[in-house]
């Protein structure tokens, strides 16, 4: 099978759905321009024309309401935000209008709207280009929230999102755009609301969110060499959550670390931890542990950024601590460094 990167998988899912269904269109600030949202919308305007792939004014609020109006009329809009930090200008529409439209019309109107938002760390992106804000949206009934990690998942989940009659918010970590794997060429759906075991293991469950699954895989490799078997569970869909998959894993291992790429306080990890303690308390060998951003705004300077973000090291040490192992010397390990791939400016 041919390999495809995450950005290419998004582009392919969008292209195939636009070919299949003339009601699908994609829009947002910069969408048809040369920068094309990290290449995810590249070539769409050439293929489908400016009526189905278009730029917008810098008006996140109205553009979200516009998408809602088009969606309840049977069109299937995909609205793209180059940063989730910008999407929060549309919070009124997402939280007051989009999320409750189906409910408050007694199901007579559907809202097949997809909102894509880029999250994640870059290169000195500072406090306003770096958030995730998962729990701001998983908190709201009526929204589906997804955060695919792998190229094959993002292709199938975005396809499912476009075909869904409910509003779906898709969080895409910018470093994942470079990830490559074998991705089927034909269109397919990965059902929303179904998680995935990325790596089976026995000793401890690591629930990874988005990019943190990449860090968790690296941590699991390091720990495997020390005889520790880590199971990695990727919820993929944050709402509705595949709780059963996570709980089953935790019941088997008896230990759980939640590796979120977001703030910890009142974050998605808090929700998950609460559910695990509520439902698996008797099977836990240790309290659930949570990993996430430091509770500060994201600093711009590299040295502080490195302290702000968790990574594979953080996970390795959390597992060691939970299992009562001595901290390993990680000096010889090869950790991910985005500076090898990316030097800005954006």
């Amino acid at each position: 099978m041919r390999k495809l990167d995450y950005a290419g998988a998004i582009r392919e899912a969008t292209t195939q759905e636009m070919e299949r269904d003339p009601r699908v269109f994609v829009y947002g600030i910069g969408v048809p321009t040369w920068s094309s949202i990290f290449g995810t919308t590249k070539g769409l305007v050439e293929k489908f024309g400016p009526e189905r792939c278009f730029d917008t004014p810098i008006s996140e609020d109205a553009m979200t309401g516009f998408g809602l109006g088009a969606a309840i009329r049977g069109l299937r809009p995909i609205h793209v935000h180059i940063r989730v930090d910008f999407m929060i200008l549309a919070t009124n529409q997402l939280v007051n209008m989009v999320s409750n439209y189906i409910y408050s019309t007694g199901g007579r109107l559907k809202v097949p709207l997809v909102v894509r938002a880029v999250i994640g760390r870059g290169w000195g992106q500072g406090a306003q280009h770096s958030k995730s804000l998962f729990s701001n949206f998983t908190h709201i009934p009526g929204l589906k929230v997804i955060a695919p990690t792998t190229p094959s998942d993002v292709k199938g989940m975005l396809t499912a999102a476009i075909r869904d009659d409910n509003p779906v918010i898709c969080f895409e970590h910018r470093w994942l755009y470079w990830a490559e794997e074998e991705v089927p060429e034909e269109a397919y759906e990965v059902p929303l609301g179904v998680g995935r075991i990325l790596r089976p293991g026995r000793d401890v469950t690591v629930v990874g969110l988005s990019w943190m699954n990449v860090e968790a895989r690296l941590a699991a490799d390091i720990l495997a060499r020390r005889g520790v078997s880590v199971e990695i569970v990727d919820p993929r869909t944050l709402a509705p959550l595949d709780e059963g998959l996570i709980l089953d894993s935790v019941r088997r291992t008896g230990r759980c670390i939640i590796a979120d790429c977001d703030w910890v306080d009142s974050g998605f990890s808090a929700e998950l931890s609460a559910r695990i303690h509520e439902k698996c308390f008797g099977q836990l060998k240790a309290p659930v542990r949570r990993i996430g951003f430091a509770h500060t705004p994201c600093p711009t300077v590299r040295e502080l950024e490195n302290e702000f973000y968790p990574n594979a090291r953080t996970i390795v040490h959390a597992v060691e601590d939970m299992l009562g192992l001595e901290a390993a010397n990680l000096d010889g390990e090869d950790f991910f460094s985005h500076e090898r791939r990316f030097r800005g400016p954006f």
């Binding site: 979200t64 309401g65 516009f66 109006g69 088009a70 309840i72 009329r73 809009p77 529409q93």
Partner: peptide, 9 residues
């Protein structure tokens, strides 16, 4: 803005 979206349809 909902009316603008509906008008597009």
């Amino acid at each position: 803005p909902h009316a603008v979206g509906a008008a597009l349809s």
